[in-house]
């Protein structure tokens, strides 16, 4: 479950996001759409607890941080960070670790799970995505799509309540390939929440339960995916959807 109340973030005098309010129940996938540079990634980083913000409060499950805490080194912030897992646009796998190493690194060293158990779980996930054979390879030996799957597994392996994905379509392989979509869907169905930021409506269609349109720094509207696609209320949303249809 995610609740955002009055979230604002500025760098010097430039407003990046302004007064964002949002509620999302567990088991759902939210797609955030909108043109590049409108603060979608900023919102995601705030949700992950990686970017301090000036106003508002974010709650994930039983953990919550307010603006004042977002810039400190308090225990509450560290606990909040563990609530979500993030997959960056450029993935940022650990280049010095193997595929297996990338996935088990945090379970073993943060959650202190015995290495053998962590490996067994990682193998199960890798098998599901049919990249088990790449287990002992290093990230740079994999294709973009394979790297993306590893990055998703790395985040999922810590079993966060929320999975955050930034522009997943920019990976080289088409992520539309069913198994990744299935994995995300399955993760959501098991009671987790997923937030996907993308400028591509096409990718989110049929996958996201909700869609939110982000205009310049603000959340213009949010609705169920079908409603927003069929009947956008705001002219800016309509404009964007019409534009993305032809793409």
């Amino acid at each position: 479950m995610i609740t955002i109340k009055g979230l604002s973030k500025a760098v010097q005098s430039t407003t990046l996001i302004e007064n964002i309010n949002l509620d999302l129940e567990p088991g759902k996938i939210l797609g955030i759409i909108g043109p590049s540079g409108n603060g979608k990634t900023t919102l995601l980083l705030c949700l992950a607890g990686l970017l301090p913000f000036e106003k508002g409060r974010i709650t994930i499950g039983d953990r919550s941080i307010a603006a004042e805490e977002s810039n400190t080194d308090k225990e509450s912030l560290w606990a909040f960070r563990k609530k979500s897992g993030i997959v960056f646009q450029h993935l940022h796998l650990f280049p010095h670790l193997t595929v297996l190493g990338n996935i088990i690194e945090a379970p073993v060293h943060v959650n202190k799970i015995p290495k053998a158990d962590a490996e067994r779980e990682a193998r199960r996930l890798l098998k599901k995505l049919e990249i088990e054979q790449h287990m002992n390879k290093f990230p740079e030996e994999l294709s973009g799509g394979e790297q993306q799957r590893v990055a998703i597994l790395r985040a999922i392996a810590m079993n966060p309540e929320v999975l955050l994905l930034d522009e997943p379509t920019s990976a080289l392989d088409p992520i539309r390939s069913g198994d990744v979509r299935n994995l995300i869907r399955e993760f959501a169905n098991s009671g987790h929440t997923v937030v996907i930021v993308s400028h591509s409506v096409r990718f989110l269609r049929g996958m996201a339960d909700y869609l939110a349109f982000m205009g310049k720094s603000e959340l213009i509207e949010m609705d169920t995916a079908d409603t927003l696609m069929a009947n956008p209320k705001d002219p800016r949303t309509r404009e964007f959807l019409r534009f993305s249809e032809v793409n």
């Binding site: 992950a48 560290w78 897992g85 960056f88 450029h90 945090a106 060293h109 943060v110």
Partner: peptide, 19 residues
């Protein structure tokens, strides 16, 4: 971003630095 990934996986600065 390497630091951020490590933090989001629950690593503290010292662990993130070391590993």
């Amino acid at each position: 971003r390497q630091w951020q990934v490590a933090y989001s996986l629950g690593m503290r600065p010292i662990l993130a630095f070391r590993r």
